[in-house]
Design a protein around this nucleic acid. Structure first.
Length: 486
RNA sequence: GGCCCCGUCGUCUAGCGGCCUAGGACUCUGGCUUCUCAAGCCAGCUACGCGGGUUCGAAUCCCGUCGGGGCUACCA
């Protein structure tokens, strides 16, 4: 391998929201670029105008930023090899296509889609490898004129010579494709627009990409890219290094889809997964540092990541493990960072409006829930007891504080708490234990459950005494009175 | 069908000829702790797809087989 500076590209085709598989690829691309001190290039492959939209392009840019996968060249930041949207590079592809035609590496093909499909159908019936049959390979000028007279617009097709293509995949080793199974492929549509096969190869060369780390679904298209390099006159040593990453599969061993798990990163963001957790988890799918380490920061990933440690076998996506890692990352957050992440979720759930007083209370309460949640979107449910205007006990547990036993507990607690001069969780707990547990002889579980329901409205809450402290004496007593009046 | 890729606990993985009666993590089960829920701690279950070789010795090398996946577009 040459000593030239590494340049890795992430080049999605935004035909939808970026999904788990895309992100895993982006993460590895980014990590490899950072590990080697190279350049991370971000390119948008929007040659399929029927499927790519501006909305998806913007979402992709936004997602990469949110994840912290900062690119050195690409949309918004620019760079020496722009533009980085293929839709803005059409003239470049047209020039190369023309050059290939001039060199006779490519030719016009006038077969209609229906005719091609008919050929393929015949091949399937005859049990022959389906593919272009070379019908228009050697058309004469007269034949071309005849097609044009019929009003046909030709596509530009690349001529695949006889023989085979062998390349070294950094993950899989040497791979060979016999050209018998790589038919002449289309570079330019009849409407003059380029296809992936043309654009990807031209751009990787023109942009100086040294390493192509991409999904294994593109493995079998590699001989076609190499054919374009040859037609471009690229020297062998200037071909990029290929490494095809294994798939991320869904729970049922099918490709990840809506059916077998949420795939859109936007969904994970809304659920309250931290980017660091997503990246940490995804890093472990198809790669490992080689030892038992699993808690890996972004910085550590850039230090540890090598292509040699990437697997060749596909990995299944496991939401449970992601949740576990997310919980770990949440617990590791400073209160300040945890607050910054959580406040938007509280606002969105209309638990708080965002006043200074609310924020101050939130920050006091957050340590109580930090080890109790796995996703940020669980925070509103646990904290709402501190902020609700119209307090009400959850209907399904109301019956538990309705009976005489519960009322006697609440009455005693009420009188004890009214007497309390110092209002903090230590004093509250001390007073209640002395009266309810020791004097009344109640089991803590019984006594505090009744009180928990009365003051927090639920059987599940942050720690009781700390919650009462934050709620305040007045509110606590008001809620206990309310429960007693039921 | 053809071509290509892949195959260690349920899942992610460690392992690159002897350290393996196969290690870690998640999940699950049981227990401890406990004001609920968590967190934490302890314990347990469960794997080298199968069949042949090579070798003193194979999860590790070779062959076959079975299984899974991708591609087979004027998608990427």
């Amino acid at each position: 391998m040459s000593a030239k500076k590494v340049k890795v590209r992430f080049a999605p085709s935004p035909t939808g929201d970026l999904h788990v598989g895309n992100i895993r690829t982006a993460l590895f691309d980014w990590a490899y670029a950072r590990h080697t001190g190279g350049t991370f290039l971000f390119r948008i492959e929007d040659t399929d105008t029927t499927r790519v939209t501006d909305e998806y392009i913007n979402a992709a840019i936004d997602t990469l930023k949110w994840l912290g996968l900062q690119w050195d060249e690409g949309p918004e930041v620019g760079g020496p090899n722009g533009p980085y949207l293929q839709s803005q590079r059409l003239d470049i592809y047209a020039q190369w296509a023309q050059k290939f035609l001039d060199q006779k590496d490519a030719y016009y093909c006038y077969c209609s889609p229906d005719e091609l499909e008919a050929v393929r159908e015949e091949q399937r019936k005859a049990n022959v490898a389906p593919g272009y049959n070379g019908h228009c390979r050697e058309l004469t000028a007269d034949q071309i004129a005849a097609f044009k007279a019929q009003g046909r617009e030709g596509v530009v097709r690349m001529r695949m010579p006889e023989g085979s293509t062998t390349f070294v995949d950094e993950i899989r080793g040497e791979v060979t494709f016999d050209h018998k199974f790589v038919p002449d492929f289309v570079l330019v549509r009849a409407d003059g627009s380029p296809l992936y096969t043309l654009a990807v190869a031209v751009d990787d060369i023109l942009m100086g990409v040294t390493h192509v780390l991409r999904g294994e679904d593109l493995l079998s298209s590699t001989p076609r890219q190499i054919r374009v390099y040859q037609a471009m006159g690229v020297a062998l040593e200037d071909y990029p290094v290929f490494a095809h990453l294994p798939f991320v599969m869904g729970q049922d061993n099918a490709k990840l889809s809506k059916r077998n798990g949420e795939v859109s990163i936007a969904w994970y963001r809304e659920q309250g997964y931290l980017p660091e957790a997503i990246c940490n988890y995804l890093a472990l799918l198809g790669w490992s540092p080689g030892d038992d380490r699993e808690n890996i920061s972004m910085k550590e990933l850039t230090e540890l990541f090598t292509v040699e440690k990437v697997h060749s076998s596909p990995a299944r996506f496991d939401m449970k493990k992601l949740e576990a890692i997310n919980g770990d990352k949440i617990r590791a957050l400073s209160v300040e960072d945890f607050a910054q992440w959580t406040i938007p979720f509280l606002k969105k759930a209309a638990i708080i409006e965002g006043t200074d007083a609310e924020i101050a209370l939130v920050k006091q309460a957050l340590p109580l829930i930090q080890e109790r949640i796995v996703k940020l979107d669980e925070a509103p449910q646990l904290l709402k007891l501190l902020f609700v205007k119209e307090f009400a006990i959850d209907s399904e547990v109301v019956s538990k504080v309705n009976d005489e036993g519960a009322k006697s507990i609440l009455k005693r607690a009420q009188s004890e708490l009214e007497e309390l001069s110092t209002w903090n969780h230590e004093s509250i707990e001390a007073a209640l234990r002395a009266s309810l547990i020791e004097e009344m002889g109640l089991k803590p579980r019984i006594a505090f459950t009744a009180l928990r329901i009365a003051t927090t409205g639920s059987t599940i809450s942050p720690p009781l005494f700390e919650s009462m402290e934050l709620l305040g004496k007045q509110a606590c007593l008001a809620r206990i009175s309310l429960a007693l009046s039921l």
